[in-house]
């Protein structure tokens, strides 16, 4: 057994540090991708032809290529594409947040679009004859109903995001998965993987419970 008790505690403390960074990636990605997804969905649905086309193209790229490739591209592309002198180097963490947010926004956009399109025309008409403006109709009548309908598919994405935070390790960010890999090869033991797996599982269990609570809270109407 390569770990004694103090060694095990040190390992856990190290992996908790990595978890903190993974949590940061998780929350920042959600904070940016949810609103961006809504804007993308609205542009995709109500924009002029140019905006519609752009949004469709953006969604195609983001859903059609691997996130791991997008991470590398966002990190390396500014350096290679910009002329010398203007070359900026993204901080790897910033690059990771940009790539994850752009990627998840595309998925959220399509979920939002499906949700918005599922609201019946009658709701818009009832709001219109009562004098609600387009904006009031969307914010007060449509969006609250959309939130309830899209919660299950959005929950799926959020659970996937927990696990996708591991992908930012490819940019050399010392998050949970990368630290576990490093420890496992250093000590030649599967135990770091086992503990990291338990942390991801615990994390997703909490996320699932919170999302189920939210669903229950919105169950007061049908």
């Amino acid at each position: 057994m390569p770990y004694d008790w103090p060694g095990l505690i040190n390992l856990i403390l190290l992996l908790i540090d990595g978890t903190k960074i993974a949590l940061k990636v998780f929350f920042l990605t959600l904070i940016f991708s949810l609103p961006l997804g809504l804007v993308t969905a609205l542009g995709r649905m109500y924009g002029n032809r140019l905006i519609k086309g752009l949004m469709k193209f953006y969604i195609l790229i983001m859903r059609g290529t691997p996130l791991i490739l997008q991470l590398s591209f966002v990190y390396f592309a500014p350096y290679f594409l910009l002329p010398e002198g203007l070359r900026i180097n993204f901080d790897r963490f910033v690059a990771a947040i940009i790539a994850c947010s752009l990627n998840y926004a595309a998925y959220f956009a399509e979920i939002f679009r499906g949700g918005i399109e599922s609201i019946s025309q009658g709701q818009y008409e009832a709001a219109a004859v009562l004098g609600f403006s387009k904006r009031q109709t969307f914010m007060r009548i449509v969006l609250p109903q959309v939130v309830k309908r899209i919660l299950p598919p959005v929950s799926n994405e959020i659970i996937t995001l927990v696990k996708d935070t591991a992908l930012v390790s490819t940019l050399g960010i010392a998050e949970l998965y990368r630290l576990a890999t490093g420890e496992a090869s250093r000590v030649v033991s599967p135990i770091p993987f086992l503990i990291a797996g338990m942390i991801y599982l615990l994390w997703n269990w909490v996320v699932t419970e919170i999302l189920l609570k939210a669903e229950k809270k919105l169950a007061y109407y049908k």
């Binding site: 019946s120 709701q123 009832a126 004859v129 009548i141 609250p144 109903q145 109407y221």
Partner: peptide, 17 residues
Amino acid sequence: IRLRLGMVFQNFNLFPH
């Protein structure tokens, strides 16, 4: 003018939430 016109639909169209 719109506010002076009321409308009742065949399918009610109440706001479910």
